[in-house]
Amino acid sequence: MSSPARLNLSAGIASVATAITLVAIKLWALGETQSLSVAASLADSALDLMMSLGALAAIVYAARPPDEDHAFGHSAAEDLAALGQAAFILASAGVIAFAAIGRLLAPEPVALTSETRGIVAMVVSIVLTLALVLWQRRVAARTGNRVVKADSLHYLGDLLPNFGAILALWASAQFGLVRLDSAIALAAAAMLTVGAMGIGKGAWDALMDRAADPVIIARIAELARTQPGVHGFHDLKTRRSGSRLFVNLHVELDGDQSLNAAHAIGAALKHAILAEFPGADVIIHFDPARKTAP
């Protein structure tokens, strides 16, 4: 298994382990406090667990090497999982917003108990979530994995509901207020919606074979243009599948030189592209350069 695959796998395992721990902590806190905000946070963590299990399965599947039926590998599984996660995140944002509005409009708030214990449980949850998000962000920055990015997004979105639960418990204990977390829950739902749309668009673009970012294309073109021995290039095509970049281009070489010399030029260009974009799948075709009339 490659180093990026191992990093992605570590992020997936950490996500599942953290989700299980958070569910256990919040179950205990709900029993102690009877808090609706804690119950909402528990439901969110249960959803996280389900999504983390799905994300881990996608990461493991995507890491499989190419085979006869999947010559380009299995990295599209990452995009499918990310698209599913985006849909679930949107759904959970809708549920959070609906619940928050319901609590704001309810004529009678629900009395809370054992607020201090609940606050301690939520603080522990925040610390665990922050540690996980920091690791996921580090992994995603190094591997570009959309599944890890999506997983990090919905855990980051958990922080606002957790802080909202703490504020609600504190306000209940100090002032008898229990609706303070509703406004924060609405803000969290908005943040989740925006983030999920971004993750979903990226996954959809990859599944539809959309070209890579223009900055990446421009850099590949510059490498081809400045490679010694390359007289020109055309038909530069790119796409992304999961965290993997695919590059296909035609380079124009001196048609009178030996095949070994042409291959050396192509190999040098390929290595230059891989140095800039590690893990990319690069295919270079050789065409004879057009000779100008004397």
Rank of each mutant, 00 (worst) to 15 (best):
A224S: 14
S152G: 09
W170G: 11
R117S: 09
D205Q: 10
G164A: 13
A218C: 11
T116C: 05
A140T: 05
A190T: 14
A150I: 07
L132G: 00
A183G: 11
D151R: 09
S172Q: 07
L186G: 02
V148D: 02
L153N: 01
L132W: 04
G198I: 10
V194Q: 09
V147T: 15
L207M: 14
V133K: 04
A173C: 02
Y155N: 12
A183E: 09
V110K: 11
A218L: 09
L130A: 08
D209C: 02
P214T: 03
R225P: 00
A190V: 15
L160V: 15
R179Y: 01
K237L: 15
L159T: 05
P228N: 06
R142H: 04
I220Q: 00
V127N: 07
L186T: 00
A188T: 09
I184F: 09
R179M: 03
P214G: 08
R219T: 13
V178S: 14
V148I: 12
F175H: 13
A218S: 15
V147D: 02
L186Y: 08
V127S: 05
V215K: 15
Q174T: 10
L186N: 03
N162R: 11
I216M: 12
H154I: 06
F175R: 08
L167F: 14
G144P: 06
A121F: 07
G195C: 10
P214H: 00
W135K: 06
R117I: 06
A165F: 02
V123G: 03
A141N: 10
L169R: 05
Q174H: 08
L177G: 02
F163N: 01
G200E: 05
W135M: 09
T129G: 07
L105Q: 06
T116Q: 09
S152K: 11
G229S: 11
A183Q: 13
I101K: 04
T238E: 01
L223R: 11
D205F: 01
S172M: 03
G202D: 13
S182F: 03
A173W: 14
T143Q: 01
V194N: 05
A212I: 02
G157C: 11
T129V: 03
W170P: 07
E115G: 06
G157T: 02
R137L: 10
L112H: 10
F233T: 03
L167G: 15
L134G: 08
S152A: 15
A190H: 11
T193M: 12
L132K: 04
V147C: 06
A173M: 12
Q136H: 03
W170Q: 09
R138I: 02
D235V: 15
M122Y: 00
V178K: 10
K237H: 14
